[in-house]
Structure formats: C-alpha cells, structure tokens
Design a protein around this nucleic acid. Sequence first.
DNA 1: TGTACATCAGTGAACGCGCGTTCACTGATGTAC
DNA 2: TGTACATCAGTGAACGCGCGTTCACTGATGTAC
Lengths: 204, 204
Amino acid sequence: MKRGYHHGNLRQALVEAALDLIAEQGPTGFTLSEAAKAADVTPAAVYRHFTGRDDLIAEVARQGYDIFAALMEFAYNNGKPSPLAAFEATGRAYLAFARKYPGHYMAMFESGLNLQAYPDLAMVAQKARDVQERAAEHLAQNLPGTKRPPATMVSAHIWALSHGVVELFARGAPGAKSPFAPEDLLESGIGIYLRGLGLLPPDK
Amino acid sequence: MKRGYHHGNLRQALVEAALDLIAEQGPTGFTLSEAAKAADVTPAAVYRHFTGRDDLIAEVARQGYDIFAALMEFAYNNGKPSPLAAFEATGRAYLAFARKYPGHYMAMFESGLNLQAYPDLAMVAQKARDVQERAAEHLAQNLPGTKRPPATMVSAHIWALSHGVVELFARGAPGAKSPFAPEDLLESGIGIYLRGLGLLPPDK
DNA sequence: TGTACATCAGTGAACGCGCGTTCACTGATGTAC
DNA sequence: TGTACATCAGTGAACGCGCGTTCACTGATGTAC
C-alpha cells in the first residue's frame, strides 16, 4: 500500500491499528509506538491527532460505546415484538458485541481508564446503559406491583451475568473451559432468571 | 524494621509485597522491581526464589486459589444445613473472597496468566471450581429429572453472575455506579435464579 | 569450645530494550492574487 | 494558468525512564572435625 507524505486519514487508521493490537494483547499490552508502526507512521505523528496514549485508547472506547449503544437500541427494537423478547435480545446483543468487537470491548471494560476523566466518554457509556434499563423497565411493568424488583436491579443482574459469561467463557480466559457455548450459557441463564421473575412459565 | 544480610523469609515477603502492589495497581501495573523494593531487597535477590516475574505472579495466584478453595469448602459445609443454603453460601463466598483478597483475586482472574503453563496452578484452580460444582450437583438432585439442567451449567451461571457483579460493581470500575450494594445484587440475583429453577417458592 | 570451610542468600553494577514524549525540521497541499 | 506563500501533517533524532534479567561478587550462616 503506497502513500505520500500525508496519510489521508491517519486518525482513524490509528484507531483501527489500536483496535487490532488491543484485541490481540489486551489494553495494557497496547503501545502507542506499535500502533504508529502498524499505521506506517512515526510515533511522533500520533501527537498530531491525539494528546497521547490514553487519549487514543479513550477514542477507541468512545467509538465502542457508540457501536454498543446502537446495537442495544437495535436489539431492543422499541420493545417489539414483546417486552420479553426485546429484553432477551439485549442480553444476546451484549455477548454478540463482545464477540464481534473484541478490541472495542476490551478498551471499554478492561482498560481501566477513568471514565470521570473523559466526560464525553462517560456520557456515551451512560447512553448504552440506559437502553438496557429502559428494556428492564418496560419488562417490569408486566409484573404485579408487590413482587416487582426495581428495573435498575434487573438490568444490573443481566448485565453482570452477561459480563461474567464474556469474561470467563468467551475468552481464552483462566482455563475456564466449559462444555457449553457462551451463547447457550447466557441464553439459558437469562431464561432461568426470567422464569424466577415470573415472566416465563414455571415449567417448560 | 531491621534485618541483617539475610532476610529470613524473603520468598513470602515478596509474595506479600506483590499482593499489595497488584491490589493497588492491577496485575499488569505490578513490577518485579517495585516488589523487591517493597521487601527492602535488590531486584536481583528475587531470582533466588522465583524464576522471574511471571513465576512470582503465579505463586500469588496459587496461594489465592488455595485460600479460595478453602473458603468455598467452608461455605459449602458439606451441604449443611441444606443443599440450598449451602449453595447460596458458596455464591456469597465468591464475593467475600474478592472483597477480602483483592490482590489474590486480581492475580487469579485478571492477570491474564496462562494456566496451561503452570500445571500445579491449573490443578488447584480446578479444585476450587469442583467445590461449587459439587454444590450445584447436590442441589440439582432436588429437581425433577425432566427439567433438571446439568449441574455444571448451574455452576457456570452462578460463577458468571458472581464474577460479573465483582467486576462491574465491586470495584472502582467503569463508572458502573449502581444504587445497590454488590452483596445485595448478588443475593437477589441468585434468589431470582433459584426461583427460576423451581427451588424456591415462586412467590415470596 | 574453636577453627576451617562449604553453602547460598543477597549485593551492586551493568546490559539492552522499548516505552512515551519533545522538538526543530521538512515537504506536500491548498489558497490568494 | 502560474507563482508566492501560509498551513500543517508527518519526520527523525533525541531524551530520560524504568523495566526484567545477568553476572561476578560478598558476607552471613551452619556444619564437620
């Protein structure tokens, strides 16, 4: 691939190089120098587009949250065809996102970067979370008031389960081999959970 | 604190220094040099007791798995007073361990070290996992055969939920503030899940 | 009890390395006239 | 259309730093006689 003195779209090229590196070596193994090299550019050139290493990672995470929020929104599909189906879809979307965008996922959840330090990042992260909370809210309305847990709690449960499945079973993780596919594990786990909420027939 | 030319118990002192550092800065932020310094010793001295940096982290993880397995065993308490109570106790034990031994926990689950490369480590890790699987097995016997999910699956669900709660809500994690205490989140999540399995009264 | 000696835990200096970041610069691009 | 010039993206050399690891060494300890 040829190019002249000017790159054309170095900023995005660096983001994509970072994505590959993060997916391969984790967010802490990622180095600015390697990203520059992968983009066929001097390390110093990075500073024309980012204030430094952390800023580059933050941009990766930002793009990740954007995609994630859109995916969740799409999965939720305004609660169609049913609140239950829509909610289940958001759970699946979480895992699908982690699978399809490992670099983004790791930058978002495993880079340890401080969300408070990047206000715009915190905002778009919140946006993604809101979708699932809305789905849980919608779902909870089907429950009799007396045994209705708060929607934020339901959302947190599903989020935690999804995240746990990803970290433990959808990676080359801590020898955590399991005889089940992560997708099946999550699907069945959510199923049992929803039955516990009284949203699915108790026997099946 | 005085000491002569010989330290006395440098090996364990290094492990404990590593624990503190890992708890503070994460397993990737941990450096051999800092651990040596914290133990009041030259970096080179470390090589009298460990083959290198990774070996030191592995030892930390090993001790962690030992404690973890013992804690799970204690929580399980041979299925007393009831399989259900014992199972719930293992779930709580997971979170309690993560809280009380953050350095160990991080070395075990967030250091990215390859379990295959340390066979003894893989063994003790498996031992810890076995306890929870046994608890799930014991529990599953109370279920009618037709709707009984495999014990390994139940165990995986609970493990994933616990791990997710720890990572997302029991750390200074990704801005993941939640209005619920991690302990409550896990407790209620497991409760709903067990109800879904038909092991708790459907309404309560 | 005293001396010689083997053992080995810890020293200190050195190494090569890749990192993030800075700086004065150069050369391509696009705009004004 | 052609020339002068401002802009600014990317260069290349250099920096200081801390890292993991090695090596020949030194000095404390414990054992044999």
